Computed example of a mutant assay.
Amino acid sequence: MGNTFCFFCGCVAQSSVGVVEQWGRFHRLAQPGFHFFNPLAGECLSGILSTRISSLDVRIETKTKDNVFVQLLCSIQYRVIKENADDAFYELQNPQEQIQAYVFDVTRAIVPRMNLDELFEQKGEVAKAVLEELEKVMGEYGYSIEHILMVDIIPDPAVRKAMNEINAAQRMQLASEYKGEAEKVLLVKKAEAEAEAKYLGGVGVARQRQAITDGLRENILNFSHKVEGTNAKEVMDLIMITQYFDTIKDLGNSSKNTTVFIPHGPGHVRDIGEQIRNGLMEAASAQVNVEE
């Protein structure tokens, strides 16, 4: 409902307060409700003020300590104090302009002492300083400052673009470092795996040769004991010839080989047998030295 009044009576709406004058001088405050006025005594309802919370958005352009121009969007929420409504009615003609002027003054005194990063981090401190100043000043005029919100901080577009590029470059540098560390770990693990594989391969080859040597030794001994009149050299030659022809047979049966050139002759077989015997003798000698 709105405020209605006539020459003899008037109605003040809820969340409002009326200002009653007598012969042009402030007489009293009219609370919400229906009121009678005595025009013969010079009473009249001069005006009505709303006691609801009002909001005023102020845009301030200023400069930071590192010479960056920014725009601050500040939202001020204020209201008329019921008990001091006469001060609000008579003292200020345009309270919005008064509030805006003090916001400009306080903000432009604080922000130039901060860097841009500090301004983003401490925007609450700026709002607190503006609130303290406005409460002290506007309270004398019958206004209460309820809240001040620093809604937005808008740097110059060129500055925002540069800040984004700096952030992107830092992230790319960090990503490159992580990628390099990952590649380093991969190469180290690969080298360790190759070294381990070569070591195990060497162990396997050594065990394979040891097993072949032990098998040949057992075959020679068994054959020498079971067949009388034979010695170890003859048995070794027989085994070598058998192995030699088995190898040739395997090469011929392999589907991956078309033509294989190998030296062939009794002398070649004899040379192989001598090499194996020398290996057996060296292995036996090394085992004896270890046992001693």
Rank of each mutant, 00 (worst) to 15 (best):
N164T: 08
V151W: 10
R160Y: 11
E194L: 13
K184A: 14
L200V: 06
G124K: 05
L72T: 00
E196K: 11
G139I: 01
A127L: 00
V185I: 09
E97K: 07
A182V: 02
I154C: 05
Y178M: 08
E121W: 01
P112S: 02
E135R: 13
V137R: 15
E83I: 11
E140A: 11
Q77N: 13
K128P: 07
A195V: 05
G124Q: 04
N94E: 02
A175R: 03
F89P: 02
K179G: 10
M114R: 09
I99G: 03
C74L: 14
I145L: 12
N84V: 05
G204Y: 11
K179C: 07
Y90V: 00
Y199L: 12
M172K: 09
R209C: 15
Q93C: 13
A191F: 08
K189S: 11
N94V: 08
D152S: 13
P157Q: 04
G204R: 09
R79A: 15
A88W: 09
A211D: 01
S75I: 06
G215V: 05
S176H: 12
K184I: 05
S176P: 06
G124I: 05
L186C: 01
D156C: 08
E196T: 08
D214G: 10
R79T: 13
E121Q: 09
G142V: 07
K136F: 15
D156V: 05
V106A: 02
P112L: 07
A129H: 10
G142Y: 03
L186G: 04
E118N: 03
M114K: 11
V159S: 00
A195T: 03
G124M: 08
K136C: 13
I212N: 08
E194C: 01
P155L: 05
L116F: 15
A206H: 11
E121L: 12
L119Q: 00
R209L: 15
N164S: 11
V151R: 11
Q77P: 09
G180V: 04
E140H: 11
I81V: 14
L131P: 06
K184V: 10
G201I: 00
Q98M: 13
S144I: 00
Y78G: 04
P155H: 02
F120W: 12
Q71K: 15
A169N: 06
Q93K: 12
E97D: 03
A127G: 14
G202T: 01
V103M: 05
A175W: 03
V126A: 04
G139R: 04
I76V: 14
I145D: 00
A109R: 09
L116V: 04
V185F: 14
N164C: 07
R160N: 10
Q93G: 13
C74V: 14
V205L: 14
V188D: 01
Y141R: 05
V203T: 03
A175L: 07
P95W: 07
Y90T: 01
Q77C: 14
A191G: 04
A101T: 02
V111L: 13
E165I: 05
E146A: 09
Q122I: 03
V203N: 06
E91V: 15
P157Y: 07
N94M: 03
A206L: 14
E121M: 10
H147Q: 09
V137N: 12
K179P: 04
R108Q: 14
E125T: 09
L73W: 13
V159A: 00
P112I: 06
R171D: 05
Q173S: 13
A193P: 03
K161N: 09
A195C: 08
A88N: 06
Q170I: 08
R108E: 06
Y78E: 00
